[in-house]
Design a protein around this nucleic acid. Structure first.
Length: 509
DNA sequence: TTAGGGTTAG
């Protein structure tokens, strides 16, 4: 279950021992920081209250945050014995918090290392519970395991091992690393847990695929919020168990009397799409409409466009496009409609929608191009598709990923232009090429009975993956198509020898 | 202070 190993064995005593092993001097040695002390040439430090006000007013402006960070360091602000050190601590905490919520949370750790310098006012004993909660939030990614582990040790050293916010932060940190055993240890050793603590633990379990465990934890909660319900519903949606997700959704409303939020609806829609039942889709739409969700929230409307398309009801997609004013439509609205036309084989309508989107002044992104390429592929619009690929790269300067290449290969392959498809596949950058891309081409070789390319492609696939039984079956079918029955049988025999797996197909219709 | 997913190849 765990993907990473703790440096110290988990147990409170283990951490206390680890904490004891890390003395003050060791900490500053491990956190080398800038040796900056105020000099006559240093800029005059602004009052910490001023910097704090700026941060609180604009908490999500990365440039401002970095300027405050820079000013604190270059002015040596934390070296001055200000009277009101609590303001300085507030400033320090808010810098860490803003970094932890932004795109570069590791910068919070760089900043923290600076404050660990022996000449600053803030060495770890003066930090408060807020500092530790924000620091563990900033460490919640797998690149920060070394720092986070030491942070846990520090928590023991300063005596916050029973503080709900601090421990919830550590729980989230371990969960984000996939260290669910350690997360469980933190969770079960907490004498008091908040609702958020439970939800953080459930989130961690679901993120790493432990949905049944998550449900078990969920069932132990004395009171559950809509967030708790949404989390487990989402877990079952992701696990491809849409009926279970729907059953939980109903139970939430009928048994616990909890009203869904927009997030709950956004979670339940993919489950309904997975079932593909238009009746349930209409019922969910009616529910959202009645509660006023889609009148105000474009995300709900976009998700409904996607849902109707996945249930095969393209008339409703058209109705949304007509009734939704262009001012309300955003890129996701247009892209969802294009993707909907694509998956329903309506290439021309997808292209027309793309044109309308551009007329409305929106610039396509990579997902839009992927949808339109898929539309061209399914609609047999090869030249148009190739033009779109060129437009994406040359006009819009977007770098294609494996899915875009996959679409182009599929498009050429379906049209029987196998040599060109093979050429594109062989030119895909090595670092992004995958077996799926070659498998797409092998499917096209099977449709067009091309043994020569089929054999080359099969070799390519087997160099990458050997356990996918469908590849042997496809190639074997190609050989049967040209009467090479013995070769076909030999390939089928390889499925057993190489322990490849092929789930037999079935139909309930 | 801490929690929950709008669109993405085959």
């Amino acid at each position: 279950m765990s993907v990473l190993k703790l440096k110290y064995p988990f147990s409170p005593s283990g951490f206390v021992a680890a904490a004891a092993a890390i003395s003050t001097t060791t900490i500053s040695h491990r956190f080398p920081c800038l040796e900056i002390a105020p000099t006559p040439s240093s800029p005059k430090p602004k009052h910490p209250q001023h910097l704090l006000s700026l941060l609180l007013k604009h908490p999500s402006q990365p440039q401002l945050l970095q300027q405050v960070h820079c000013h604190i360091i270059t002015s040596g602000l934390f070296h001055y014995p200000f009277n009101n050190t609590s303001t300085c601590l507030l400033l320090l905490n808010n810098v860490i918090r803003c970094y932890s919520r932004g795109p570069s949370p590791h910068l919070a750790l760089h900043f923290f290392r600076y404050t660990q310098h022996s000449h600053t006012l803030f060495t770890y004993p003066s930090l408060d519970t807020f500092s530790f909660a924000f620091l563990s939030h900033a460490s919640a990614n797998p690149t920060c395991t070394h720092f986070g582990t030491q942070l846990h040790a520090l928590v023991f050293k300063v005596g916050f091992q029973f503080h709900v916010y601090v421990q919830t932060g550590l729980l989230q940190m371990y969960s984000s690393w996939g260290l669910l055993v350690e997360a469980a240890q933190v969770f079960y050793q907490m004498p008091h847990r908040s609702l958020v603590t439970w939800n953080v633990f459930i989130t961690g379990l679901i993120t790493w695929g432990e949905v049944e465990l998550a449900l078990s934890v969920f069932s132990q909660m004395s009171s559950r919020s809509v967030v708790s319900w949404t989390l487990v519903i989402d877990g079952y949606t992701r696990k491809n168990q849409p009926m279970k997700a729907l059953a939980l959704f109903r139970e939430m409303i009928e048994v616990d009397g909890i009203e869904p939020t927009h997030v709950t609806l956004l979670t339940i829609f993919p489950a309904i799409a997975n079932i593909g039942c238009i009746k349930i889709c209409q019922s969910a739409h009616g529910y959202a409409e009645k509660r006023g969700f889609n009148a105000f929230d474009i995300r709900i409307t976009n998700a409904l466009i996607d849902l109707y398309a996945k249930c095969g009801c393209i008339a409703s997609v058209n109705r949304f496009l007509q009734e939704l004013p262009d001012q309300r439509k955003n890129l996701v609205s247009w892209t969802s409609a294009i993707s909907g036309f694509a998956m329903n084989g309506m290439g021309r309508e997808a292209l027309e929608t793309f044109e309308n989107m551009e007329k409305a002044g929106l610039r396509p992104n990579r997902v839009t191009f992927l949808s339109v390429l898929s539309a061209c592929s399914h609609g047999g619009l090869v030249q148009e598709g190739l033009n779109f690929f060129v437009k994406m790269v040359e006009d819009c300067k977007l770098v294609p990923d494996i899915k875009h290449y996959g679409c182009v290969i599929d498009m050429l392959g379906r049209a029987g232009r196998l040599e060109e498809a093979e050429k594109v596949a062989s030119q895909v950058p090595h670092e992004v090429a995958n077996a799926v891309m070659w498998r797409t081409l092998l499917g096209a070789c099977s449709v067009h009975n091309n043994v020569e390319i089929g054999q080359r492609v099969t070799r390519k696939i087997l160099e990458m993956e050997r356990g996918h039984g469908g590849d042997y079956v496809l190639m074997s079918n190609i050989l049967v198509g040209v009467g090479r029955f013995k070769d076909a049988q030999r390939l089928r025999d390889m499925i057993d020898k190489r322990i490849a797996f092929k789930l037999p197909g079935y139909s309930i219709v």
